[in-house]
Write a protein that binds this DNA or RNA. Structure first.
Length: 480
RNA sequence: GUCCCCAUCGUCUAGAGGCCUAGGACACCUCCCUUUCACGGAGGCGACCGGGGUUCGAAUCCCCGUGGGGACGCCA
């Protein structure tokens, strides 16, 4: 069934009966986290795939909680990921006049009404209903009905405006991800669309905006499933076209729990700081809840071409840092060298290490790019080329033994005399190994400790060659 | 409590009634490569939540359980 629905949508779109317009509508009350980023990504990809428009709308009607910093953080996140929008950002706070007009119109037409219940009354009502085990809902006290006498309007109390939700029947929509969803109007109540001080509320603004911005597919988190019937009812009351809805399941943290401030809900820009390439994060996110057969690694261009709503999973997905790391390592291996150089330079500077002209950073990176999981690791691993390391004590103890000292001393003397190439260095080490009846690591390891400070590195001959003869010998003599 | 949603290896997933002895990827294990660590290569371990139906045939469709999640604001 769902397959069929998807096909019908694709068909209509292909015939240009529908020009796709999607939106991403964050509220600027915090940074752009991984869940929001995926919602934005899918919405963006859908528009790109169908040659439509992707709109960025800022839902900032909660004046108290919206901040310019959060706004900037969201923009930074979108930009880092490269999710470009065609229209916006459109701020809801700048559309207040329009919302007021619509509210007045609804009041005039009788699809909305004033309610004079106080917050205290409402709280008490809710508590009572919860205690009785029924769903907390507005009791319709001020809802006008034919033949009904309303209470006397109290003086000095500014009223809220409520939407007059249908009391019977059901709201049905064919969710592009979850299939048909049907909710009885009896489950709904008359929601507040304008606060006592006059500002409009979320569900109302969303309905008006989705309508007036001509949104064709609302792609959003499935925590909005419960808002959908309310929005559809308002849309119908306004005589608006109801868009299609696609509700994405949530992303769980690495531990299987809901993402929260304590559980992995960090800004996407934190991934930049942590050394991830945006294309790795994007590729990972794309694969979280969506698939194209067995494809795992693909570009955003490829993703936009393949993306469809009927291959989205309807179940929640657990975030897996290991797999993200694997993708990141992949993209580091295949990145342009210039890009890695600038990333490493920036990250080394943050460590207080200034990159010198020699050794050439690009060469150092090429030695390490296949073994780095992230850009910070990559930067740290080449740091010793520019900053003489303090050899690891345990490594010295283990590998720089009294027995091997004479061999290393003799080798150092020979190294001083050779032409400084990988091959010549290798030959010198090999000679020290064979002429003393040793195994290669017995000679290579002390050198590695002296030169890199640790026990793990690429081929020691290549490392020494790149480091340069003088510095290499200085480090060896520093240890023996 | 009420309503809604969800359920395939540890994790992300393929799966559109017969291509399923359930495929791929991450992780893990073994071996190979090797100059340490990685990379790479070859193998391996490992799943259809339970119970009923429908059907010649069910991971797939239906029902009931169970488990998980979400929503119930003058927040968004």
């Amino acid at each position: 069934m769902q397959f069929l629905r998807g096909k019908i949508v694709d068909f209509l779109v292909s015939l240009n009966f529908m020009t796709v317009r999607t939106r991403f509508a964050p509220s600027p009350t915090g940074f752009l986290h991984i869940g929001g980023a995926r919602t934005a990504l899918f919405s963006w990809a859908y528009a790109r795939k169908h040659g439509g428009s992707f709109i960025l709308r800022i839902e900032d009607t909660d004046l108290a909680r919206s901040t310019p910093e959060a706004m900037q953080a969201i923009l930074d996140g979108m930009n880092w990921l490269g999710l470009n929008w065609d229209e916006g950002p459109i701020y809801q706070t700048q559309r207040m006049d329009r919302y007021r007009q619509v509210i007045q119109k609804m009041l005039d037409e009788g699809t909305a009404y004033h309610c004079y219940c106080s917050k205290e009354e409402l709280d008490a009502l809710r508590e009572r209903q919860m205690a009785e085990g029924i769903k907390p809902r507005y009791n319709g006290r001020w809802r006008p009905e034919p033949g009904k006498t309303l209470p006397a309007i109290p003086t000095g109390i500014p009223p809220v405006v409520r939407f007059k939700n249908p009391q019977s029947g059901t709201v049905v929509w064919d969710d592009l991800v979850k299939g048909r969803i049907e909710i009885s109007n009896e489950e709904l109540d008359d929601l507040i669309i304008a606060r006592a001080e006059g500002t409009p509320t979320y569900n109302f603004c969303v309905a008006v905006d989705d309508w007036e911005m001509g949104i064709t597919q609302v792609i959003r988190g499935d925590d909005h499933v419960n808002n959908t019937p309310r929005q559809i009812n308002m849309l119908k009351a306004l005589g608006a076209t109801v868009p299609q809805y696609a509700h994405l399941s949530m992303i769980l943290g690495d531990d299987g729990h809901k993402l929260s401030k304590r559980h992995g809900a960090v800004s996407v820009t934190q991934y930049d700081e942590d050394g991830y390439l945006p294309e790795a994060v994007l590729n990972y996110l794309a694969r979280l809840g969506w698939s194209h057969g067995d494809e795992e690694i693909f570009s955003m261009a490829q993703f936009c071409e393949w993306f469809d709503l009927n291959h989205i999973t309807s179940s929640a997905a657990q975030f897996n840092t290991e797999k993200l790391n694997w993708l990141n390592a992949h993209y580091i291996k295949h990145a342009e060298i210039d890009r890695l150089v600038s990333e490493a330079t920036r990250r080394l500077a943050a460590l207080g290490i200034i990159v010198k002209a020699q050794p050439v950073l690009a060469d150092a990176i090429n030695l390490y790019r296949e073994r780095a999981n992230n850009l910070n690791e990559l930067a740290e691993s080449v740091a010793y080329f520019y900053h003489r390391p303090a050899p690891d004590a345990a490594a010295v103890e283990k590998h720089v033994t009294p027995e091997i000292m004479p061999v290393i001393k003799a080798l150092a003397g020979q190294l001083a005399a050779i032409e400084w190439t990988v091959e010549a260095i290798h030959a010198a080490i090999e000679h020290a190994v064979t002429s003393n009846g040793l195994k290669f690591p017995q000679v290579a390891m002390p050198l590695r400790v002296a030169v890199t400070g640790g026990t793990q590195s690429p081929g020691i001959d290549a490392v020494m060659s790149l480091l340069g003869k003088d510095e290499t010998l200085a480090r060896i003599y520093g240890l023996i």
